[in-house]
Amino acid sequence: MIRVEKLVRKFKNMTAVRGISFNVDRGEVFGFLGPNGAGKSTTIKMLATLLKPTSGRALINGYDVVRQQDRVRRSIGMVFQDPSLDERLTARENLYFHAMLYNVESRLFKRRMHEVLEMVELSGRAGDLVRHFSGGMKRRLEIARGFLHYPKVLFLDEPTVGLDPQTRKKIWEYIHVLREREDITIFMTTHYMEEAENCHRIAIIDHGEIVVEDTPANLKKMVGGDVITISAGNNQSVMDKLAERFGLRAVVSGRGLKVEVEQGEAFIPVLIREMGEDIASVTVQKPTLDDVFLKLTGREIREENVSTLDRRRVFARRRLHR
């Protein structure tokens, strides 16, 4: 559904995207994960025909993003990183203008509008001005709008940036339901690790290049198994027993013991059965994509930068949408 070959984009004094290639199958959710400035938004803009590639090729739904712009645009829906609704129009009007621009027949539009608004639970607010909506509601409306014209591919550029965790979770529920029902391919960018786990496959991008591309589960395997933390009365005896019975090497960490196993949840019952009387408590920690990123690039995903940027963005939204 999406085919990208050696895509490059140079700006005046920097190369934002350095020859990336990947394919996305129909119905797949494919994610670009990386810090700010890694080239995610530049890539998405090129795929959505908003920016011309310096070299390389990209096909969306079989159409070339440079030579068949119009067909590409007909095939895609877009949810931008920053809000793109007309605040002085009502939700219904925003959807109506979208339908007009995408040539959705007016009878079909009425049905479709109810459908998508219901999906994102905004049916009751169709006639209200968008400027009175909360950040989460606006985001939901934008996602509904992205789906309105039955796109084959939906682009989500940082779909839940700056939203609170509950809203974020809710928005992902909507996206998954809509995707399954309409067999839509989704390409998204994010710098939230937990959000990337909604994808079937992830490409980690850094400095304009794809560092690795795999399923979230496989990527996590790269950093090793689950970490189990055990607190016990007698650390030394537990360590000895672990080595003797399971061949595991535990390390002392703080007051407890840490040991790495492949399948954390499956190991716990065994551990309890074998040496339950020695153990006070057990916790399992799964590796996150943060760990993957750290391992592959030697850097954190620059959480600090990310959160200041988010805060600024949230602030900007509030200011713009008073």
Partner: peptide
């Protein structure tokens, strides 16, 4: 442009 609506129009198939 500042409020982002222009992008929505520019990405439309017109």
């Amino acid at each position: 442009r500042e409020f982002g609506f222009l992008k929505e129009v520019l990405v439309a198939p017109v």
